[in-house]
Design a protein around this nucleic acid. Structure first.
Lengths: 242, 242
DNA sequence: GGTCGAATCAAACGACCGTTTCAATCCTAT
DNA sequence: ATAGGATTGAAACGGTCGTTTGATTCGACC
């Protein structure tokens, strides 16, 4: 029970043991997922006693949340802070979609780039968590993201005044999906190595390809009755009567 | 061992027991993932003896592959067949991106729509599998998808002759990512209910929103040095020196 | 220097896991 | 009808799981 009160042994509220556990858990959760990673594997990798996890974090689920919070919370705060700074900057008039997307991407890039901050491992873990239907994970993520998403939705809404709110919500959903899938990408790294053998396979070239793609999707004309939709109708009718 | 030879008890090469196992496994794998779903839970839900899975499928992993193959194989064959039909159709000249995307989406929609074909459950399971780094899952999926992806990449390449092959590969990757994430979507159904309370929350409205978004991304101008890229550079430099 | 809480440790708990075994049963083909 | 393979059944195998316990060590403070 004493573990629930943060230690004051160092300035950041965590002990060396807790940090070693978090580092090992981050790497193993990323590689095998939550369910398939055992506390014994984590404590062995961290050179720590098995009971230390339950002592310091309470349970395996709480450890998982701590792993996510450690990186996700600062990243989302940086995102909102960056957006605030852009919005207050009087030089550029109304905020463009490009700059909003920059505020969304740059903190993720900084995290991926700085090995001391966890780097690529964490982004892959985050992408996995996004696809996990476990209730406690979904609850945790939506709580963590709710504020940030709301802020960015408002910003995009001002940048795209002609876009109905409902349509914007969908497109933001698609953006977060493509982003998390791309970052989780077990295949993405392989793809980079195959396609760009000269570029070092970091997440930066990845996001630099993703941004124009998403921007075009964001600005796409309204799909009231676009070609693809009509063709979809026709094909589905044809398929139904086959 | 005898189970490895398919029974001839019915016309489709599977027994009623095997079908019940596949149905139960599909639902449970979808809900809890591969690792967190036990054979005991599957066999109990299927009202089948525990040993039946190892008898009929060999192992838990092979059962998982059988669950995927049952739906995925016909769906991808339908995709390629549809694309073939479009390409051979002399009426419409060179194939448009819209029609290629239709060939990619319609078989998924048919599967999602027909409850007898497994419906939404399977698409969610597929989305999960896409994000799973387990080696046997990744190997299986890339084998299953390799042919289909290659065919569609070639088709898109003809429809977008100005787009370098490398860029096209990236955008196809993004498309498959957004598609699988959206279909896996634990959040998507919730989003539909919130945004479109009048529409029945099926996958069709979902894909109808996704298609225009992805089409715009596909046709996006080349990101040689787009605004967002330059802004990204600037912001990253600024962040580095902070 | 002794005290007291925080932290670590080895060991065990009960539960559940995937898989195997082998006898009992079913179904088909002779 | 009956032989023989295909299928099902109950039970157990060895392991691993998350969590708990109770003793032991550590380190700051009066």
């Amino acid at each position: 029970m004493a573990g629930s009160v943060v230690s004051l042994q160092d300035g950041r509220g965590t002990t060396a043991t807790q940090d070693r556990i978090l580092d090992a858990a981050e790497a193993l959760f990323m590689e095998h997922g939550f369910e398939a990673t055992s506390l014994r594997a984590i404590t062995a990798a961290a050179s720590v006693n098995l009971a230390a996890v339950n002592y310091h974090f309470g349970s395996k689920e709480e450890l998982f949340e701590a792993v996510l919070t450690r990186r996700l919370d600062p990243m989302n705060q940086r995102r909102v802070a960056l957006l605030d700074r852009f919005e207050r900057d009087p030089a550029n008039g109304p905020l463009s979609c490009e700059r909003i997307l920059v505020a969304l991407f740059v903190p993720a890039l900084e995290l991926a780039r700085d090995p001391a901050l966890g780097g690529k491992n964490f982004l892959r873990l985050l992408g996995r968590a996004y696809a996990d239907p476990a209730p406690f994970i979904r609850r945790f993520l939506s709580e963590q993201y709710a504020q940030m998403i709301a802020r960015f939705k408002a910003a995009f809404g001002r940048a795209l005044p002609h876009l109905p709110a409902r349509e914007l919500s969908w497109r933001l959903h698609f953006i977060m999906g493509a982003l998390s899938y791309t970052l989780a990408g077990t295949d993405a790294l392989k793809l980079i190595a195959e396609l760009s053998p000269k570029e070092s396979p970091n997440d930066e070239v990845l996001l630099r390809r993703l941004a124009p793609f998403l921007l075009a999707g964001l600005k796409a004309p309204l799909p009231d009755l676009p070609d693809v939709s009509r063709e979809l109708d026709g094909e589905l009718d044809a398929a139904r009567s086959r």
